[in-house]
C-alpha cells in the first residue's frame, strides 16, 4: 500500500486488488447487493483506493481497515442513498514522516485483534460479522459487549497523540 501511495506502483496495486476485491465483493453481497451491482461497486471502491492512497496512514489504520471504511461508505451511498459525514481530518504535514514504530505497532495490534476475533465462540463472532455486514437487530446490538478493543484503542490513541504533538511543533 505504501508503494501505491508513494510511487503509484501498479504491480503493488494489482496485489492489493487481487486480495481485497473478492472480499469487498463478498462484503457488499452479504449486505444485500446483487452480484452485478456489487461488481460495479468493487470497481469504484478499488478506484478510490488508488485515488485516495495519499491519505493512507499506516500508523492509524491497517490496509484492511482502510479499505473497509471506503467500502462501508460506498455501501451507505448505494444502499441507503445517504452521504456519510466524516470527522474533520487531522493531517500529516507533507514533510511529516509517519512514525515507523507506530505503524509496526498498529500492524501487530491489528493482527492480534484479528486472531482474537477468529478465536471467539462462533455465536459471538457471527454477531460481530452481522453487525459489520449490516443485518443486525437492535436487540442483538444490545447483546454485543466486550469486543476485544482495549489494546488497539490505546495504540490508535497514542498515534493520535504523537500526531497532535507533531502538529504543535510547527
Amino acid at each position: 500500500m505504501i508503494r501505491i501511495r508513494d510511487e503509484q506502483d501498479e504491480q503493488a496495486f494489482a496485489e492489493v486488488f487481487q486480495y481485497f476485491a473478492p472480499r469487498v465483493k463478498a462484503f457488499l453481497m452479504r449486505s444485500g447487493t446483487d452480484a452485478a451491482l456489487a461488481e460495479e461497486c468493487v470497481q469504484e471502491v478499488m478506484t478510490t483506493v488508488w485515488q485516495k492512497s495519499a491519505m493512507f496512514d499506516p500508523a492509524r489504520a491497517s490496509v484492511a481497515t482502510w479499505i473497509f471504511t471506503i467500502a462501508r461508505n460506498r455501501k451507505i451511498d448505494i444502499l441507503r442513498r445517504q452521504k456519510r459525514p466524516e470527522p474533520e481530518d487531522i493531517y500529516w504535514g507533507p514533510e511529516e514522516e509517519p512514525d515507523q514504530a507506530e505503524s509496526i505497532g498498529l500492524q501487530q495490534e491489528s493482527e492480534k485483534l484479528g486472531a482474537a476475533i477468529a478465536e471467539l465462540p462462533d455465536k459471538q463472532r457471527e454477531l460481530i460479522e452481522k453487525a459489520y455486514f449490516g443485518d443486525l437487530t437492535h436487540r442483538e446490538i444490545a447483546d454485543m459487549t466486550g469486543l476485544p478493543l482495549g489494546t488497539i484503542k490505546s495504540r490508535i490513541r497514542l498515534a493520535l497523540d504523537r500526531l497532535r504533538h507533531a502538529m504543535d511543533r510547527k
Binding site: M29, A61, F68, L113, L147
Partner: peptide, 19 residues
C-alpha cells in the same frame, strides 16, 4: 478507529466472491 479496525479484521477474514 478501533471499531473500524474490527471492520477491517472482519473484511480480512470474510469469505470471498470472485470478481
Amino acid at each position: 478507529e478501533a471499531y473500524d479496525s474490527v471492520g477491517g479484521a472482519v473484511l480480512d477474514q470474510a469469505e470471498t466472491v470472485s470478481v
